[in-house]
Simulated assay, not measured.
Amino acid sequence: MAVADAVPVRGSWTRALPIALPAAIAALMIGACFLGPLVLPVPAPTGGNVLESYLPSFSTGHPLGTDPNGNDILSRVLHGGQASLTVAVSVNALGLLAGGTLGALSGHLGGIGDTIIMRVLDVLIAFPSLVLILAVAQSLGPSQANTILALAFFSVPAFARISRAATLRLREQPFIAAAQLCGTPAWRILLRHVAPNIVPQLITFAMLGMGLVIVIEGALSFLGLGIQAPAPSWGNMIAQGQQSLSATPMLVVWPCLALFVTVLAFNLLGETLRSRWSGE
């Protein structure tokens, strides 16, 4: 009996581990970035002492060393993570809300409205999004808010297409037809029947989008079109460190490592959720 009871336990752990591990890593990175500066004795990320510039890693009072301006690298990595994660969460939340709503309306209502909405979104998808993001970021000016707006705008078509496809599948289900025959308004059908069934798919896509947005935000900040120094972000920290890469490589290694671990965790989490949802 004991052996038989152990089998389902082992199976449940096998199924839970692919989700639990990346989720735990992502939660650890989020907790470290947002709670770390509150509980750890780290100095402010700016306003360092230039007399303490270029301190090596594991220096007293500066576990990861200092940058050319004497700022603590650990503090800047944690605060930079706050900026990158805030952008990623905001972009995916706005994209999910706007794109998910447009896609659900388009798929449920059909007709000329569906055609117009999807053709407009198809035009946006047809353009090279990275080039347009760079152009929009340049025209709006470099800031965290403008970075969020630029990235969120171009995330809407992808969320809308996923939402529309899921809604079209649901529209053929008997419970949707029954609700329509009972005279239920379209908005109530969308809120009570469609939304609960498509939100899990949109959240799964958002998990994959988190990693992509973090990378793009880092690239924009690296190019000087995102979050501007002295405010830290992983992208502008890498840009600053590459100027003295041969002499002090750790200035680049630490933000790159934080970015890599965070993106990997969200990608693995999103891919696992996608596989579970699709039944693979």
Rank of each mutant, 00 (worst) to 15 (best):
L212W: 05
R164N: 03
L28G: 11
P157D: 03
S233W: 05
V136M: 14
V199C: 02
L96R: 07
G80I: 10
T60M: 14
S221T: 04
G111D: 07
L21P: 00
V77P: 04
S53H: 13
A135V: 13
S139A: 14
L96C: 07
L202W: 07
L191V: 08
P142M: 08
T66P: 04
G107W: 08
R161T: 04
L190N: 10
A219T: 10
N197V: 06
I25R: 00
F153G: 09
P43V: 13
G110D: 04
A206W: 00
M210L: 11
L134S: 05
F153L: 15
V120M: 13
W187S: 12
Q173R: 15
L181G: 01
W13L: 15
L130P: 01
G81F: 13
E280A: 15
A229C: 02
E52T: 13
A104H: 02
P43N: 09
G81K: 11
F159W: 06
G226E: 03
V194W: 01
G65K: 02
H62D: 09
P157N: 03
D72S: 08
L212E: 09
G270H: 01
L74K: 09
G103S: 04
S163T: 06
L273Y: 12
L168I: 10
V156D: 08
Q240M: 10
M207E: 02
S155K: 10
G141Q: 09
P196D: 06
A6R: 15
L251I: 06
I216W: 00
T248F: 15
E271N: 15
L124Q: 06
G36R: 11
A32F: 12
T262R: 06
A165I: 13
L85M: 15
G235E: 03
E271C: 00
L259S: 14
A16H: 03
M1S: 14
T101D: 01
V253M: 14
V136D: 02
S221F: 00
T60R: 14
A177H: 14
G241K: 07
T86I: 10
T86R: 12
E217V: 01
A179G: 04
I214L: 12
N49V: 10
I238K: 04
I227G: 05
V131Y: 13
S275R: 15
T184K: 09
R161I: 12
A195I: 08
A265M: 11
G70C: 10
A145V: 12
I73D: 02
T262W: 08
L35T: 03
C256L: 14
S139D: 03
A88G: 11
L149T: 09
L191C: 10
Q138D: 05
E172T: 08
A23E: 00
G270N: 06
A160N: 07
A152Y: 04
G61S: 09
A93G: 07
Q243M: 13
V3Y: 07
L225S: 02
N236A: 04
V87M: 06
R188T: 11
P142K: 03
Q242G: 00
L257E: 04
G235M: 04
P142R: 02
R76I: 11
A152T: 05
L105G: 01
A98T: 14
S155Y: 07
A2R: 14
G99K: 10
F222S: 12
E52D: 15
L190G: 09
V120T: 14
